[in-house]
Design a protein around this nucleic acid. Structure first.
Length: 748
DNA sequence: CTAGGGTTAG
């Protein structure tokens, strides 16, 4: 009735007439509040008000009637403004200020209002004000207050508020208060605290269990989520998992690659229909199977689904990409009815995993054409591809794109940028990014340590490492690989040994095969071949081909045929198809002029039908990446390039370059090896750069194999004769050439 | 309270 009255008030042109009746109505209402004639209860009438506009009407009339400070009305107004969907909390606050001594109830209502509109800082202010006014919080205060907290605010005030709740005795008595704190600590990732509070309560409903599980998932403590779930199952009389619980558990199993756990959930709860299926649950199932590599099972779920969304499809694409079935991933990707940025990024990452960087960039272009906006995940992948291609211009374009399109510049992006700049040889820019990054994680520091080491700044790399420790960031096994790398690249044998032993002593990291590989590399490159061999023979793990490969590389440098033979035999035991190893042995024999042995190996290769994969070099120009393969003539300007090489040769020889063909042999196909017109891929790239790149532009080349002596020598002379800066990144290290100087002093 | 994609080394 009152609602109708209000409505007509709003619509009627003769508002004043009606407003008179309202005044009368209100007066009667007040005089009636204590009477029993509630058949037309004034309270219930007021409560049927449902917009701020209506509330304003009533309020202004109470003012006209001189009832502006009437407690009953103010309270009702505040409740409306704080709890109704359309209520204006700031309006409530003004009214609240007019009440000289508000009750706890009113304080709580105001706090609840701020939580409703997600102004939790205001809620906290009010809570503080409440304490200042000597009002004690009750067991409603905390649930209302905490409800609207964001992660940051929760972190800022969570612990203090917990102390308050303990002090007032709510925490061990009131389930609602406990629940509010479990939610809060789970939200701000303080899972140990959340668990503590959780253990104080008993008989939790399923939602609270779920909050705990999702909290553990959020902080990637999946094992503990599993443990909690097992605990939950023990209490099956009191609480049963629902579909949300199962989704959380499947997600944990997916991240743990725990197929047994995933199957357990599937068979116990899902397959038999104990818990009803829904789209989210089925997608979680697909994801679990897919990340465990069980694509048949994943397909089974996928095929049986009544409704599939873009997430279902993307999970299948990701699953195939993860087991390196890029063809099947692509097939499903093509068949998708719609693709979002996650689908595109998943496909892009599939190619990244296969080291198909050109496909990455092609796909990215396609993505842009189809008008799907990349986000920070996509851009990390693009930057990673640029890093591997040595595509600095493209990488810088990506950075500009990120800035321009306001893509979230998070730690992942920063790390990827640092890595990209280092891999393109731009140390200065990498440092710049590092310096402005506000959140540095272990990846950031590791990228710096590795990047500086690779670019010949070994000392600075080790300084970074001590800065990292000072910043209380815990290094992992990869950080230590970087540290050992730094020692190797500047020949600090003693320091390397020191760090190798310290890694276990200080940080409890057991050296893995790769670390032993680093030690072999460190000792071998610096000429301590016997010691390097001892490391291999005494290591507690089975040496893999990389470890033996390090020794082999060192033998090549220091021309130790005996050890090299031994290493090769070991490697060929492990990888009989590894063409590069045969080639390396041939190179060693060639370097020592042991022609007979060389022919033997050559014959062995022929008999076994081993073919060496051709080396290739990449170079970027104007954002386009060019690929050069040794001896190849497919480039449209091939003639020019070879011409340039021929006339370069004389100029270079005049400037002190003497061609060294000892290592050429096996890089060439059968037909080409007799001709003198054979050129390494990086030489083709250099020649092309000299033809096409303007003066003063740095020539940047990425080579997928080890740079040979001859090319190294030639690059040095090129930088002098043509006054060019040259950066060549090969499989094992960076080579900077400027004015004929090489920053890679202990190249060998 | 619930589902999909990201960074480092060898």
């Amino acid at each position: 009735m009152f609602f109708m009255f209000c409505s007509s008030t709003l619509l009627s042109p003769s508002f004043s007439k009606l407003s008179l009746s309202l005044s009368l109505f209100l007066k009667r209402m007040i005089s009636n509040t204590s009477s029993n004639s509630f058949s037309h209860s004034p309270i219930s009438l007021l409560e049927s008000c449902n917009s701020m506009y209506q509330l304003n009407q009533i309020h202004s009339h109470t003012i006209k009637l001189g009832l502006s400070s009437n407690h009953f009305f103010l309270t009702k107004f505040i409740i409306f403004c704080c709890t109704n969907e359309s209520g204006d909390v700031y309006y409530a606050r003004k009214l609240f200020e007019e009440i000289p001594q508000p009750s706890v109830f009113l304080w709580n209502t105001m706090i609840k209002g701020y939580s409703r509109i997600s102004c939790c800082e205001n809620g906290v202010c009010l809570y503080k004000l409440m304490l200042i006014n000597s009002i004690k919080p009750d067991n409603y205060t905390f649930p209302f207050l905490l409800k609207g907290f964001t992660k940051d605010v929760a972190l800022k005030y969570g612990k203090v508020l917990l102390n308050h709740a303990v002090k007032h005795g709510f925490l061990d008595s009131n389930l609602f208060v406990q629940k509010a704190f479990v939610h809060l600590f789970s939200l701000c990732r303080l899972m140990d605290l959340a668990h503590k509070v959780f253990d104080m309560g008993d008989g939790w409903e399923v939602v609270t269990w779920n909050v705990m599980l999702s909290g553990y998932n959020r902080v990637k403590r999946f094992e503990e989520a599993k443990g909690l779930f097992i605990e939950m199952e023990k209490k099956c009389e009191c609480v049963l998992p629902n579909s949300v619980t199962l989704v959380l558990m499947l997600s944990a199993c997916s991240k743990l690659k725990d197929l047994d756990g995933g199957n357990y959930i599937y068979y116990k709860y899902i397959r038999n229909g104990i818990v009803e299926r829904n789209l989210i649950l089925e997608n979680a199932l697909i994801d679990m199977f897919a990340s465990c590599g069980e694509m048949d099972a994943a397909r089974g779920v996928f095929d049986d689904m009544k409704i599939r969304d873009v997430i279902s499809w993307t999970s299948i694409v990701t699953g195939f990409a993860n087991i390196c079935r890029i063809d099947l991933a692509r097939k499903f990707f093509e068949q998708m009815p719609e693709r979002d940025n996650v689908s595109w990024t998943a496909m892009i990452d599939g190619y990244l995993r296969m080291n198909c960087f050109k496909e990455v960039l092609l796909l990215f272009r396609e993505m842009q054409v189809s008008n799907v906006k990349p986000d920070e995940f996509t851009m990390v992948s693009i930057l990673t591809a640029c890093a591997h291609l040595g595509a600095l211009e493209l990488g810088e374009w990506a950075k500009t794109y990120i800035d321009k399109n306001k893509i979230k510049n998070d730690t992942f992006i920063g790390n990827a940028l640092i890595d990209m700049y280092f891999k393109c040889g731009n140390v200065e820019k990498a440092r710049e990014i590092f310096n402005v990054m506000q959140n540095k994680d272990k990846f950031t520091w590791t990228a710096m340590i590795v990047g500086l080491a690779n670019n010949g700044h070994g000392e600075e790399s080790l300084t970074m490492f001590s800065n990292m420790l000072e910043a209380s960031v815990t290094p992992d096994e990869i950080t230590y690989i970087g540290v050992l790398c730094a020692c190797t690249h500047v020949g600090m044998v003693a320091k390397g040994k020191y760090f190798f032993s310290n890694m276990t002593i200080q940080h409890g990291i057991k050296p893995n095969v790769a670390h032993y590989g680093c030690m072999v590399d460190l000792l071998g490159r610096s000429g301590h071949l016997k010691e390097a061999l001892e490391v291999i023979l005494n290591m507690p793990l089975k040496p893999n081909s990389i470890v033996w490969g390090s020794l082999l590389g060192a033998c090549r440098v220091h021309k130790n045929v005996q050890l090299a033979e031994m290493a090769v035999k070991e490697i060929l035991e492990l990888e009989p198809e590894n063409g590069a190893v045969y080639v390396l042995l041939c190179n060693i024999y060639a370097a020592c002029k042991k022609w007979e042995n060389l022919h033997e190996v050559r014959k062995l290769m022929m008999d076994r039908g081993i073919k060496k994969t051709p080396g290739c070099s990449l170079m970027e120009m104007n954002g386009i990446v060019y690929e050069f393969v040794a001896g190849d003539k497919s480039h449209p300007q091939s003639k020019e390039i070879y011409g340039k090489l021929e006339n370069m040769k004389q100029e270079l020889i005049n400037a002190g370059y003497s061609p060294d063909t000892s290592e050429v042999f096996l890089d060439v196909g059968e037909e080409d090896k007799e001709t003198s017109l054979y050129w390494h891929s990086e030489k083709l790239a250099i020649a092309y750069a000299l033809i096409s790149l303007g003066d003063g532009v740095t020539i940047r080349i990425v080579k997928n194999l080890r740079m040979c002596v001859d090319c190294h020598h030639m690059a040095k002379v090129v930088s002098k004769v043509y006054n060019r800066e040259l950066i060549v990144r090969d499989k094992t290290r960076f080579h900077h050439f400027r004015h004929g100087l090489c920053s890679c002093n202990n190249f060998w």
